[in-house]
């Protein structure tokens, strides 16, 4: 199923990537090329086949309910969390004003 330029722009908007008309035009061909190729998957008879969940047999482990047990996954490290922020403000991350 071929996609058109409007669809390319819609996807770009969903993905929050600004694109120009020229970029959208170029991408239309590339994406159709790739999507056309992956569509051969439709040939495969998958009746009765479950989608892959765990590639290697393994079950989900659960963590104990302990605060800051490991500093690498615990809180209380505001400086580290904010260290690379483009616009730190009084302990917050600053962003352009949002209207809800």
């Amino acid at each position: 199923m071929a996609i058109d330029q409007a669809t390319v722009k819609k996807i770009a908007s969903l993905a929050r990537i600004a694109i120009s008309d020229a970029e959208a035009a170029a991408m239309e061909g590339e994406l159709n090329n790739i999507l056309g190729w992956v569509e051969q998957l439709g040939e495969v008879d998958v009746s009765g086949v479950e989608p892959m969940t765990a590639v290697i047999p393994n079950t989900l482990r659960l963590r104990d309910d302990i605060v800051d047990a490991d500093p690498l996954t615990g809180g209380n490290r505001r400086d580290d969390v904010l260290a690379n922020a483009p616009e730190p403000q009084h302990g917050f991350f600053g962003v352009p004003k949002v209207i809800e």
Partner: peptide, 8 residues
């Protein structure tokens, strides 16, 4: 579909 093919 891709994840089913992955199972196969």
């Amino acid at each position: 579909q891709a994840q089913k093919v992955r199972t196969l």
